[in-house]
Amino acid sequence: MPAATVVEVQNLVKRYGDVVAVDNISLKVKKGKILSFLGPNGAGKTTTVEILECLRSPSSGIATVLGLDVSNSSDQQKIRQRIGVLPQSFNTFGLLTVKENIEYFISMFGFRKQTDADSLIRLVDLEDKKDAHYRTLSGGLKQRVGIAIALVNDPEVIFLDEPTSGLDPKARRGVWSVINGLRDSGKTVFLTTHYMEEAEALADSVIIINNGKIVAEGPSSELIVIHGGARSIVLKEPGDSIVKAIRAWNSNTWFDGNSIKITMNDGSDVAKIVDLAQEYEFDLSNMDITKPNLEDVFLRLTGRTITEDGGTR
């Protein structure tokens, strides 16, 4: 039996004046899956999730969460009872402790089935910080509190909007392991991110959005096979002269200022690069051969790449 559809969006459009933030997108999220909504800043990710969270109303199109219509005000209240949300740049009461914050949000869901604060604290691995004031926590720990709060009503679907934005790699991995734990407990997760590796590491399937439009969707491995292209040769910190020479030889290259990436046609490309390296005195210990990843997918589909801070280049 195929898994039930938890989130469904059809021909969704959101305009702010003349600006079209979300341009006629359709998507489905199956129960128990982690969907990663991947795209640069301003692509329409947050607008889409905020429509699904009943924070914004769509300009046109249909969006349902758990079979309930986000545009219907009595459905909205039911949706809010049954979803968990980690908003973008999450924040909560700084002078309350971790546990008090979680208990505060538990109390907000009234008589509905509730999770107790201690088990949530255990789930996000914050036992030794549970009595610390929220404002004293580091960014990564704050996000984990946010995830715990998103779970207070034992939601069927969880929206995580940029959960690791601005975190250092170690903190990011800490949050990832919490999100992976959610998958194991059978929750459906709708995750927006501009980090390629996050989408690749966590998601069962990925939807790539750019300029308000969906450009590709599917499991990341599939997207890489279809859109990622062949392996690439990467030279780190090449000199100007070798960059010039490589570009004269092969137009299928991409240079971001720090490294140049050459998509391979066949094995002879390696020999050619080695020759050029010797000619231009490039240190071959700075050469890599990489498999294609989501970055290549995005690059091939949009001609751009997403930077660390979520912009495009």
């Binding site: 924070l55 908003p87 924040n91 709060i149």
Partner: peptide, 13 residues
């Protein structure tokens, strides 16, 4: 401005 209201708005409050 600090985002707490945005979080509260996603709850039934």
């Amino acid at each position: 401005t600090n985002g707490v209201l945005r979080k509260l708005a996603t709850t039934p409050l």
